[in-house]
């Protein structure tokens, strides 16, 4: 009765999510299994070969657009970094080069996969996308395995059979159904996961960006303490939203925005931590040990920093504030657009 794990054969293709998780597909003798992994758990969907009516592959422009944007950003940030390098702005240029290097790695990994595409499986009652099959090179390999596996169960549809099937599908009701006719497909809303975390997370991300922007000019210790606690809470909420979103039925873009928000928080928190350590080292002679071990005392030290007068700190804070506000606003817009579909 139970399916032995060893009977599953991996289908080519693995799509990694932005921060954690991946999509894969496996073949068993009688069904296709898709796995949506969130890092700590896996969600399964099965498509039995006897139920599959058709497989539809469509070409998309996602890879072209993504690679073009990456290329432009990569070149732009590298050149910007090169202009800023000598002098006081050197730390910011190193930061920009690191971001460019990450983009370059992503570009090198993605470019050889070929044009992006989507694979849809049609059964009598559903039409579902297979997320792991996302690029033409992978799809070609996968189809060479998947199509024979389905035909082994159902038989083949070729020659005269195909002609009859075509006529039966499209012309059985007085030419009412001809190619190009639109059909209304009822949307099935998935439920199960809570959306409250998303409702909180995106506004929190926007506010975090605003707090960083304010902190450029207004830096009393109490405000800095509040902003730090707010950002740590925002990070925690974004991670929880990302973890619970698997079953919510939210669109891929909203899910991506959630993880982008968590990722942005993480990067900013790590940069803040590095800044603190650098501060300890560079200001070792000015600070007494009591100050470095007491967070409130450190906030007092930070409040005295002249961000406006230090170009690299000003730009770093501006970039961080802009990124958080943009992700928060985009996430909020996409979330409510998704809810009103």
């Amino acid at each position: 009765m139970a399916q032995d794990p060893e009977t599953y054969i991996k289908l080519p293709g693995k799509r990694r999510r932005i921060i954690v998780g991946r999509d894969t597909a496996y073949l068993s003798p009688d069904h296709l299994l898709t796995i949506e992994s969130s890092g700590f758990s896996e969600q399964y969907k099965r498509y039995y070969f006897k139920d599959i009516q058709a497989i539809n592959i469509i070409k998309t422009r996602k890879a072209t657009i993504t690679n073009s944007i990456l290329l432009v950003l990569m070149i732009g940030l590298s050149v910007w970094g090169a202009f800023l390098y000598p002098g006081e702005m050197a730390p910011l240029s190193v930061f920009l080069w690191i971001i460019s290097a990450v983009m370059l790695v992503y570009f090198i990994m993605n470019a050889p996969q070929g044009a992006s595409c989507e694979v849809w499986i049609h059964t009598r009652v559903q039409k579902e996308k297979i997320p792991s099959l996302y690029a033409s090179r992978i799809v070609n390999k996968a189809m060479k395995i998947l199509v024979p596996a389905i035909e082994k169960v159902q038989g083949t549809l070729g020659g005269e059979n195909l002609k009859n099937a075509r006529n039966k599908l499209y012309f059985k009701k007085d030419d009412q159904f001809t190619p190009g006719t639109r059909v209304k497909i009822p949307r099935v809303q998935q439920t199960g996961g809570s959306l409250i975390w998303h409702r909180i997370s995106f506004p929190m991300t926007m506010i975090s960006g605003a707090l960083i922007a304010v902190a450029i000019v207004y830096r009393p210790p109490l405000f800095l303490a509040f902003a730090s606690i707010w950002m740590l809470s925002g990070f925690a909420v974004a991670v929880v939203a990302g973890a619970v979103q698997t079953r919510t039925g939210l669109s891929g873009t909203v899910k991506a925005a959630t993880w982008a928000s968590a990722g942005a928080y993480l990067v900013i928190l790590v940069i803040g931590y590095v800044e603190t350590v650098v501060g300890w080292v560079t200001m070792a002679s000015e600070l007494d040990p009591f100050q470095t071990q007491n967070q409130w005392e450190m906030f007092k030290v930070y409040s005295k920093m002249d961000v406006l007068g230090t170009p690299w700190m000003f730009w770093l804070n501006t970039v961080q504030a802009s990124i958080l506000m943009m992700i928060g606003a985009a996430g909020l817009f996409l979330f409510y657009k998704d809810q009103n579909r």
Binding site: K50, D51, I52, Q53, A54, I55, N56, I57, I58, K59, T60, H122, T123, R124, M143, V147, I150, E151, Q154, G155, T156, L157, G158, N161, L162, A165, R166, L169, Y170, F177, T178, P179, G180, T181, R182, V183
Partner: peptide, 30 residues
């Protein structure tokens, strides 16, 4: 509804409405 000419041929054909390139594999269950 997609074009019927390219069914099971492995070639991409444009959708009559949105012009998206489609490749379709049809099986007897359909």
């Amino acid at each position: 509804l997609i074009q019927t000419a390219g069914l099971n041929s492995g070639s991409f054909l444009p959708c009559p409405v949105c012009q998206t390139q489609n490749q379709t594999w049809l099986f007897p269950e359909a």
